[in-house]
Design a protein around this nucleic acid. Structure first.
Lengths: 207, 207, 207, 207
DNA sequence: TATGAATGAGCTTTCATTCAT
DNA sequence: AATGAATGAAAGCTCATTCAT
């Protein structure tokens, strides 16, 4: 049992190695341009071995996406216990993106470039994740409208788009220009500015 | 001369047919998944004819992008004569996206999915267009800040991201869900709501 | 009749233009790399027109070869009237190659590179020409052996190979290095040296 | 280690199989007409495997040429140790061609038809080999002239052409007519006759 | 578990040839 | 006579996937 557990650990380790390599390669070349050979090379293994750990290229890609969504939804599941206000929720989302971008920029890059806007790679399963995510935010906005914390003359769906679009645009810029996030203060500034504009608008105060 | 002009028309016509077919196919499958066979079939012509009119697949794709950017920059070139305020400018951009989406949804779809966020297809030329576009908007924001029409505590670059992100998110949603734009009133509502939130924020008035 | 004759002249003229263009292009690119488009462009006509004057690419190529062989055999047919000795005959062949190389280097180039040694383009018809040519020289050597003008311990076939090989090697060198033939004196030197070595050997006299 | 050595052997074996098949097909059809499909079929393997062992069609072709030149230059490198006279050198070259033609007629055929005279396939690298080869023979002739073993009224370059042309013509004839070389005695006769004529001329002794 | 040989469908691109005008 | 649009069969090369070892 010790041995099998050890083996199990090894299995997960190797899987993680491949996973990491895949992230790096897919981030750099895009899903369709990333070859299994590239990933295996990056991982320092033979390409045949990739198929021991993942059923197919698509399967490997789905594992990456699952990793992303799982983390995001885990964060949002906290909301059910702590019942934060809309500002905290949106702040948490922005922070999640920025934190992940600092920890695992490849993952964020892949989400932004391959999923968030590219319909090329969309399978029904992948579309479901997106919808689920947007629905959750939309209903948060609906709640906030009912509590009069957010203006009611704009549909929740619209607010969701505006908000997510702003985040994605920011992250995209960093991602595409390979900008590193330098420390907590920069994250604070970005996150603060984004929420500030979103809630109070681009017009100068007192106008 | 009549004949040559006629022939020239035919040439341009056929080119347009292929162009249209390519838009439809690329929109549906994405650039890399779109095969020349598909495009030829969609256009109702033989395989080789595509290469009679376009040097390569990349060339055909670039022609599509050029069409998009040309229209967008032509619209913005008007600004130099009419010197509109920042609100008119942003409104014009939103309207351009929505109008084009109504007229040529494929073109907008391709721009959004293949260029706006996908780094996979980015060539140096293509990156140049994007930067040029963002720079133009950024400098408009800088002007507006100097005239105190827009808050100055947020960098123009950030405002640009927030604004473009919001637009793209909207269009993306329509694009990905293949939502048709129903009439002028819907465009008005979307455009109005977007600008309203952007300028005045998501918070209810009087808060 | 005047008109039809005129038309006939025109036809032959245009045919000659295409012929010349084909020689230049095939010389430069080789038969298989030469495209009909290239030839038409070089001739200053549309590529469709090539097919008015020549049935196919192979047909055009055969016309070029025929031109070469016709000239060569016409020269050799003179022998039947003038009954020259073997030295005159071989000298005439060398001179024919050199003169043609001066007049129409493309033709010689094509013969050397595409026919003389390349089995790639050999059709049965083309092989026949070569055999005919070699047989004629071989029988000349046989005659000369009977008259004791040439050593008899080497088969006529061998002598033919040695002689033709030497010529071809020379012309090849000029052809491949694009060496121009500068005047009559150089031709004399080459031709003289070649025949001298062939008849008297590479060993110094008196050895 | 045994295993890896075995694998290495297998790899080289398979490479040799493809190499041999390529020789046969290219010999028969010429380089440009030889399709990868043909080679794979001839080798009894699948299409893609050719690309597992050779980077491209040109790469495979270059491997064949390298094989030829390597052998030829290895033979000539012996000269530096044994310092043979010009007659031995030329004899060694003739024998090399004839021996190789007996052992690997395809290789000789390819050299003759695709390289020796066809400018179509010439890349800069390939031209270098040829020049190197001719330079070596030329300088051997220059040496022999200094030692008065060879007549000095003909340029070494000319002698080189005459000699190589004669060999090539012989081999060409066998190659083009697919004549097999029957035994040592025939090789002796050809080689002897060729050198005899080259050194002593075609004229009968005592003339 | 690990390797990489082997497969072959699939893709872009080229170009001789035909044919309507 | 002249044009060039139109066709489609090849051909080279890539790469996900399978499988024997």
């Amino acid at each position: 049992m010790q041995q099998s557990s050890q083996a199990h650990e090894n299995r997960k380790d190797k899987q993680a190695v491949i996973f990491g390599a895949a992230c790096r390669v897919i981030r750099e070349k895009g899903y369709h341009q990333a070859r299994i050979t590239d990933i295996a090379q990056e991982a320092g293994i033979s390409y045949g071995l990739v198929y021991h750990y993942f059923k197919s290229k698509a399967d490997l890609f789905d594992a990456i996406l699952e990793e992303w969504w799982t983390g995001l939804f885990a964060m949002m599941d906290e909301w059910d216990r702590t019942t934060p206000g809309i500002e905290e929720k949106l702040g948490a989302i922005v922070r999640y993106f920025l934190d992940e971008y600092e920890r695992r920029p490849d993952l964020v890059h892949i989400f932004i470039t391959e999923i968030s806007r590219s319909s090329a790679n969309l399978t029904p399963t992948r579309v479901k994740w997106i919808k689920l995510f947007m629905d959750r935010i939309e209903s948060s906005f609906a709640d906030a409208q009912r509590e009069k914390i957010v203006r009611s003359d704009i549909k929740p769906r619209y607010l969701t788009h505006i908000f997510l679009g702003a985040i994605e645009s920011f992250i995209s810029a960093m991602v595409l220009e390979n900008q590193p996030l330098r420390g907590r203060s920069q994250k604070q500034r970005i996150s603060g500015g984004l929420l500030e504009v979103f809630f109070n608008g681009a017009r100068p105060t007192g106008h």
